[in-house]
Structures are given as C-alpha cells and as structure tokens.
Design a binder for these strands. Structure first.
Length: 647
RNA sequence: GCCGACAUAGCUCAGGGGUAGAGCAACUGAUUCGUAAUCAGUAGGUCCUCGGUUCAAUUCCGAGUGUCGGCACCA
C-alpha cells in the first residue's frame, strides 16, 4: 500500500506496487509524456521501477539537470549497439557520460576513423527511430559471466568478475541488444533525441592502466535539443580561436621548433608579457617577506640521490657529461634540494623561521613526448618556486598566508575562481606512515584555519608529502594545476637540514614547497586564453600604437610616442603609408588595447584621439591629460594599491 | 611512452607518379587618405628527414622526427 509523496507535498496512495510510469499517468497525460525517469527517495531510477513501499518521488523531465547525464549515457548505449551491428566482432567495454558528452571504449583489431562516423551516426538514428524500450533485468552473476563469455565479450565478463559480491548484476535491453549496466536509463532509445554528434576517436588503456591493452574510444557530445548542440559546437569554435598556440603565433609571442621540442622561443612581445608577470610576482613576494635566490642549473647526481629524486625520476632527468669530468651532472628538475643547500650553509636559528626562500627557477624535465602541449606542458620551464622553512606549529599560519597571497595574485590576473584539490599520500612514497599522518593532519588543519574548501584527490600527493593543488581551466576546458603547496617532513631529513631551537637543541625544520603560478609557461598559456589575447593594459606587450593619418603628422606621432615611453608605456608608432582604416584593423586584430590616432588636427592642437580595443568611440584628449591618464591606467594592480592605501 | 591523424610559401590551405598553386602577409611603385582591408606590380618552395619501389617520387611503401586529438605520466 505505498503512499507516494510528490514534490508539492501532496500524497497519493496506491493499492499495490506501482511503477513510476503509472504514478505519472495518474497525475496527468502531460507528465506521463514528459517524465523520463524519477528520483525515488533522492535516488535516480528508471521510470519503470516498481515502488512497493512509501516513498517520495520527483519526476525527471528533459529540462531537469539530471536529464542531460541520462541523455548522454543513453546515447553511449545507442552508439555501442550501432557499432556492434556495423562491425561484428567488436567488443564493448564501458561507456559513461562525461562533461558535455559521452564516450564508449571498444575493443577491435582495426581502429575506427572519423570516416566511419557518418555510417555509425546513421545507424544510431535508426536505433533511436525504433524507440526500443530500455528494459532492466537482474541477472545471476555466474550466468551473466557465462553469457558474455560465450559471446566473446571478455571485457564485460571481467567487469562482472571484479564487481563486489554484494553488487546486483543488472542488464539493460534495448530491442535485441543487451548490455551490462548499472543504469538508470530513460524510457527508450527514442528519448535520446537527435541532438548528438560523434566527435573524435582516441586510444585509451583498458581500465586506465598503461599495462593493459589499448582500446579505441569514440567521443561524442549530446544535448537536449539542436539549439543546445549548436551552441556547444559554436562554443568549441570560439575556444579554438582563443587557443594560446594560435594566439601565440598570431600575436607573435613565441614559437616552438623541432630542434628544441618542449622548449619555448619567446619573441620580444611574448617576453614582455613574461617579464610583466615576473616583475609582478617578484614585487608581491618581496612584499610578503620572501627572500630571492638563484641556484645552479647543473648539479651532481649525488645530490639527487640524497634527495631521492634520482631513484624515482632518473629517467625524466636530463643528464650532462663532459669528457674530462668523472661526475654525472643533471639539469635540475626542481629547486628544492638546492634551496636546502643554501639553508644548510651556516647555522640557522629558530629566530630566522619561517624562512621563505624564493627562486624563479629554470627547470628541465624529460616529459613523455605525448604529454607535450603548446607552452602548457613543456620540458624547459621556470617555476615561481619558493620553500618555506618553518617549525611544525608555523605550518597553519604559513599556509593561510600563502593561500591569501595566491588568491590575491590570481584575482589580479583576472581569475576570480579556482579549484583546490587536496592530494594525499601516494602508494609509492618516502617517509613512514606516522610522518604522513603528521603532514596530512597539519595540512588539513591549516586548510580549516585558512578557510580553504577543497575536494579530495586521493593518492596524488608528491612522494615526500601531501599537497594542495590550485587548478585553473584553459579555453578548451582542460584543467591545469598551477599553484601548489606541499608539506614536506622528508626532504629536510634526507638532506639534513636543521636549526637551533630556543632550548639550544638541534631541530629539523619543515619545508613547505609552494608555487603560485606554477610555471610561467603554463600560467601565461592559460592567461593568454583567459583574455583571448586582449590583455589588460598592465600586461599588454604593446600598450599603445600611435597611428598617423598623414605624413605631415609623423613628427608629432614620434613625439607622442616618446612622451608615452618616457612614462613607461610600451609604444609602437605606425607611420606606414596606409589608410587609417587599415592601421586600425591590423592593430585591433593584434589586440592592441589602445590606438592613438594623430592627424593634422591633433598635431596642431597637441591632442591625441584615443580608440580603445573593442569600441568605436574615440576620446580626444590633450597630450598631457592622455599621458597622466594612461600612465595611471597602465600601472600593475599591486602598485595601484600601494599608491592608494585606502583601496 | 601507447593508439590514431597530420606535415606543401611567413600564415591559412588547394593539388597530384613527369621537380607545384591560391588568398593573406612581404617587397617595389603610385596614392596623403579621419577610425576594422587603396590600387598596381614583383619576388617567394630541399613539398619535414632518411631509405625503398620506379625510367621518373613532393605524390606510392617503410623508418625516423615533430605537431595535433586522446590515454598513460606530471617531483
């Protein structure tokens, strides 16, 4: 005698078990048509599920947020059926919904190509047109294994074998096609709709493990309707336009070439941007009580052996040999062991702690070829690195200070939000469990104190300690770890760092490894995409173009440019024999923030006509006014703040 | 590193077993023009590298390198 509570609080009573479909029908034909699934006491289930006890249900229709995931999951099933009917012998594995779409991993000797997509999509439309109901069946575990094994579906059989014994084995049927699936699904294949598109093929290791065979993955996207799909596809195109690799070429910021794969040639404009970011971070760190150092590029392997890096990362290190040296030198892949050398040079007192040692440290790592990505993932990069040597009870305070600094820096660069992940102990690690308990505990406590909200990233910590990862997202939707804070009790021990405590005893400091931008290369890549090349004035590599209209105005144009340069702006004069329209167009396409147009009028009146990127309006100012105004506007945000203490 | 695709002028791209083409950019000349493309002309290539097949390879085949999309990796 189930009593069903609906979202409006009303209760409907039924004489016996009912399905969601029946409940919806009892409420009205409109709902019966619209309901795709239901939330049964908060859990998303099939509409056909029978309800035997009192329950609260919420119907899920196409406009609900939950519907999207179901549409995508169901589309993946339809894809799998289509592929198996077109390419017999292909084994199915898994096919989840993901952000913006879905994928399905297939095992087949011959890989798919995008040329196969039209045929597959056509077959998918047929399957959707048939609108076969998704039927849920509970199977016996051994029967299910035997079923898939006879069909030659060894991946599915393996999946079932590895499911915990308590798990109910459910199968979903859509017409003649049947698949192992946890569900839930919508009513039938017709509910998928037509707003889907196969996007790309890719290799993917079975169960994400590189020791396993590689499967062929087909990625697709699916939406509620064509309008949503079109909007998404358009968004992808726009993302492509702001790809840092494209903008880097178009704006002449940097290039990468074969002879130095994974290393960046910074061009004058790119380097200007780089230096603006570097100077800014240096000022912020100076102000935050850091001392800056510079340590060697080439360091004897014995130091890396002591630190533990040689053992764990040898194959990712660039090693240098010279004819008459017996030593093996390695290009530093990180700065921490070098910083400990400076810390160890002389006797340290507890009075010096916390000692915040910063370095714009150029590092090299032999990254796997497939990992390289524009300037975001490279083999030669520079970290805005620092190590804070402190006592255990300073960890929380230093963490809070660091998070404050990082948030403020990110805000100044235009990132108002970012994600924080807490990565705890990995399987392969240095240090005993007690040390890890201590380090993780300290970091957790520090987060609580600093009010940092994070998601857990289990097992992803550094080998010497747990870490906070500060994650930013690029234009194409990929997440990148930029900032980090790592608590380390291990390295100080391995490299024998110590200080004299207030009771004259010798103590080990704790090291906090931290970076705000992470690497300049990666951060600038994301920054380029964040602004789509249209940088705020303080970061723009060319801040002002003075464009002359007629040759007569050129001497004045040069004078204007000189005057702005004297105020610290980066200025280019465009005195070419081109129409002003052409000049405006070209510099606008180059994303120059401000164009000062000067013709006879301006030369005579000693004014400038300013035109801002993205606008059509022009603002005519006296040269003196313009100089003051733009000089102020071009100030980095931290300098603006220090000049105006009330802000 | 693994799976797949791709590599032709500075850029975007077309082409195809008989040593290559467009648009934009560049250069030269004319034009001196008021807020997103002035006109005309000129020049520009180891068709990624190495090997193989062939009378002949930039084109077909193989290997390598790099890039791109994923996966794995990321101190």
């Amino acid at each position: 005698m189930p009593a069903i509570t609906l979202p409006d609080g009303s209760v409907r009573r039924f004489d016996g078990p009912v399905t969601g479909t029946e409940v919806a029908a009892s409420i009205g034909p409109g709902l019966a048509r619209a309901a795709l699934a239901m939330k049964l006491d908060g859990q998303l289930v099939d509409l056909s599920r029978s309800i035997e006890d009192d329950a609260a249900i919420v119907f899920v229709t196409r406009k609900d947020p939950d519907a999207l995931g179901m549409i995508r999951h169901d589309t993946a099933h339809v894809l799998a059926e289509a592929v198996q009917s077109l390419y017999p012998g292909t084994q199915v594995t898994i096919g989840p919904s993901i952000e913006n779409g879905f994928y399905y991993d297939f095992a087949r000797n011959e890989p798919f190509t995008p040329e196969d997509f039209p045929a597959i999509e056509a077959r998918m439309r047929e399957i959707i047109g048939r609108n076969a109901a998704f039927e849920r069946e509970v199977w016996d575990r051994d029967e299910a294994i035997a079923f898939f094994e006879t069909k030659g579906e060894r991946y599915k059989a393996e999946l079932i074998r590895d499911l915990p014994g308590t798990e109910t084995i459910t199968m979903y049927k859509q017409g003649d096609w049947i698949d192992l699936c946890r569900g839930p699904h919508m009513r039938g294949t017709g509910d998928v709709g037509t707003a889907f598109k196969l996007q790309k093929v890719a290799g993917a290791y079975w169960r994400g493990d590189h020791r396993n065979p590689m499967l062929t993955r087909i990625y697709g996207t699916a939406w509620r309707d064509q309008k949503e799909l079109d909007a998404y596809l358009q968004q992808l195109e726009e993302a492509e336009r702001r790809d840092h690799r494209r903008l880097g070429r178009e704006m002449d910021l940097f290039h990468i070439q074969e002879e130095a794969a994974g290393s960046i040639f910074w061009h004058p404009k790119g380097w200007k941007l780089y230096r603006a970011a570097e100077s800014y971070v240096r000022r912020r760190q100076d102000a935050a009580g850091y001392v800056e150092v510079k340590t060697p590029q080439l360091v004897d392997r014995v130091l890396w052996e002591r630190s533990g890096h040689w053992d764990k990362y040898r194959e990712h290190m660039f090693v240098a040999h010279v004819e008459d040296e017996k030593r093996t030198l390695a290009l530093k892949p990180m700065n921490c062991p070098c910083h400990v050398q400076i810390f160890n040079h002389g006797l340290r007192s507890y009075r010096e702690l916390p000692l915040r040692m910063a370095e714009f440290g150029a590092c090299h790592r032999y990254e796997p070829s497939g990992a390289l990505h524009g300037i975001m993932r490279v083999r030669g990069f520079t970290q805005d690195d620092a190590h804070i040597f402190c006592t255990p009870d300073q960890i929380a305070d230093e963490t809070a200070k660091f998070v404050d600094l990082l948030s403020s820096v990110y805000r100044d660069f235009g990132f108002d939000s970012f994600r924080v992940k807490f990565a705890d102990r990995p399987d392969e690690r240095a240090g005993d469990d007690a040390t890890w308990d201590r380090a993780e505990g300290a970091l957790r406590e520090a987060c609580a104190m600093a009010g940092v909200e994070y998601e857990l990233n289990p097992g992803e910590g550094a080998f010497y300690g747990p870490k906070l990862e500060f994650v930013l997202r690029d234009a194409i939707g990929r997440d990148w770890q930029c900032g980090t804070l790592q608590v380390d009790f291990v390295l100080p021990d391995r490299l024998d760092a110590s200080y004299i405590a207030d009771d004259s005893s010798r103590q080990r400091p704790v090291m906090l490894h931290r970076a705000i931008l992470g690497s300049f290369e990666r951060f600038l890549g994301i920054l380029i995409e964040q602004y789509a090349g249209r940088f705020p004035l303080w970061l723009a590599p060319v801040q002002l173009v003075v464009a002359s209209i007629v040759t007569d105005a050129e001497p004045y144009a040069e004078e204007v440019a000189e005057a702005f340069r004297a105020r610290g702006l980066s200025v280019v004069v465009d005195g070419r024999n081109e129409k002003i329209n052409a000049k405006i167009r070209e510099h606008s396409l180059q994303h120059v923030p401000i164009i000062a147009v000067v013709g006879r009028k301006e030369a005579e009146g000693r004014t400038v006509a300013l035109r801002r990127l993205g606008g059509q309006a022009q603002e005519v100012l006296s040269l003196a006014e313009a100089l003051d105004g733009l000089a102020l506007e071009a100030m980095p945000p931290d300098i603006v703040r220090s000049a105006t203490p009330n802000r």
